[in-house]
């Protein structure tokens, strides 16, 4: 392995794993000394991608697996969330604000809007019937004095 910083976790499509995934990524990102706001942004973005895999990718299925991989290069955190679910037919359309295929589940079509707002870069690769990979990255400004607030935001309390 050339990338000794790399972290990956795999889990089933149970909603309880959404909070597990975002806390795990936040804890991993903590080594870059992010600010409380950066941690909050990363958690929201990860939560969006993982929730999408569960709700859309594996809709009505219990056997789906989700993989979250993270790397850090210098001050940049990269997170990828992948599933082998139904995939997305039209990615551009899916990323439009307020576009949702599940209004009956009270979904509002804001997930990709938040991912794009909170991360520097978001790319989506998806093939209908095969699955989806969402890759996101964020430069961390590095808050020198990592404080109790950050530890709490990470979920280290």
């Amino acid at each position: 392995m050339d990338d000794i910083q790399k972290m990956s976790i795999e889990f089933g499509c149970e909603p309880a794993n959404e909070s597990f995934a975002r806390v795990a990524v936040a804890a991993y990102a903590a080594r870059l000394n992010p600010t409380v706001e950066e941690i909050s942004d990363i958690k929201t973005a990860v939560s969006e991608a993982v929730t999408n895999s569960i709700i859309h990718g594996y809709y009505g299925r219990k056997d789906g697996r989700i993989i979250v991989e993270c790397t850090i290069k210098e001050d940049k955190l990269t997170v990828s969330v992948s599933d082998r679910g139904v995939g997305i037919e039209d990615i551009d359309k899916a990323m439009e604000p307020m576009y949702t295929t599940r209004p009956e589940l009270e979904r509002s079509g804001m997930g990709f809007v938040f991912m794009e707002a909170f991360m520097d870069e978001v790319t989506v690769e998806s093939t209908a019937g095969e699955g989806t990979i969402v890759k996101m990255s964020r430069r961390i400004t590095s808050d020198e004095q990592i404080n109790n607030d950050t530890c709490m935001a990470v979920g280290y309390n």
Binding site: T44, S47, E48, T51, R107, S108, M110, G111, V113, A153
Partner: peptide
């Protein structure tokens, strides 16, 4: 302390 699009919907 935390909210995502599930809260908006």
């Amino acid at each position: 302390e935390f909210m995502d699009s599930s809260g908006i919907g």
